[in-house]
């Protein structure tokens, strides 16, 4: 059983939900990546998504776009990130998931990428511009390297397709909560709970909700119907503003819940 499966098994046994923060590698400099990962684990992350900056991030809203631009200005490269993640693996015990658009991987070389992230101890990979129809370009190499390809479903995905996508994965299924790009939002579609219920029912693997999640109320509401949340733009923003206390508070949302009970 790999690190991702173990983590979710443990959460399940404790009847707990997963808080998965997203951070942009190289925002604030690549030198602080390991330190930030350690901090996120300490704050209670179940796993961490590490974003790779890309010049043309079409699935991302302004916050993550800006973080990517800052990271690129800091001359962050995929190679540099993988090197840092290998160092992080010595001190971070929770799963690490790389989130990157396809082109940086393609330029790196798909075989080399799969091999190098396996050596660095990366557990999963999310590629937002790689739908089911095109995944043959990399899925076999990731499978050989025992790195989970984390797939996405959205409110625009028909039920049959959700079933097909969910059936392919082993780590967790990423349920995008909006028809839209990443970024914080106050309001969610009323149909969202129905969507998450449907995804949860169709998915044999854990379901994490993501995109636009920024506060405790949303998190509590959403996790009634799924196994956890991914919080991206909000975490990126809190790192940039150096509001670590606020981050710790947000990330302890499930612990507080446990205390109340």
């Amino acid at each position: 059983m790999n690190r991702l499966e173990q983590s979710f098994k443990l959460l399940n046994e404790n009847n707990a939900k997963a808080f998965v923060p997203y951070m942009m590698a190289g925002d604030g400099g690549l030198a602080c990546l390991v330190e930030r990962l350690v901090l996120l684990e300490k704050f209670g992350a179940a796993a961490i998504e590490v974003g790779v900056p890309f010049s043309d991030p079409v699935a991302d809203g302004p916050t993550i776009q800006s973080a990517g631009i800052r990271a690129l200005e800091n001359r962050t490269t995929l190679k540099g990130i993988i090197t840092e993640l290998a160092k992080a693996r010595e001190v971070v015990t929770i799963p690490i998931i790389l989130m990157t658009y396809l082109n940086p991987i393609y330029a790196y070389g798909i075989d080399d990428f799969a091999r190098d992230i396996q050596i660095a101890g990366v557990d999963g990979c999310i590629i937002p511009d790689l739908p089911l129809e095109e995944e043959d370009i990399i899925a076999p190499q990731l499978a050989d390297a025992q790195v989970e390809l984390i797939r996405l479903v959205t409110p625009a995905t028909p039920l049959e397709r959700i079933k097909e996508i969910a059936g392919r994965g082993k780590g967790f299924l990423y349920a995008v909560t909006v028809k839209g790009i990443t970024g914080t939002r106050n309001l969610f579609d009323n149909d969202l709970n129905e969507f998450l219920k449907a995804v949860k029912m169709l998915s044999p693997i854990p379901v994490l909700a993501g995109f636009g999640i920024s506060n405790e109320d949303q998190i509590k509401e959403l996790t009634k119907n799924c196994d956890g949340v991914v919080v991206g733009s909000k975490i990126v923003e809190l790192f940039e503003k150096d509001k670590l206390f606020e981050m710790e508070k947000l990330m302890s949302v499930f612990k507080q819940e446990a205390k109340i009970v």
């Binding site: 699935a59 739908p131 995905t157």
Partner: peptide
């Protein structure tokens, strides 16, 4: 090579 939201 598009986000899942656009596949439909």
């Amino acid at each position: 090579f598009v986000p899942e939201t656009l596949m439909k």
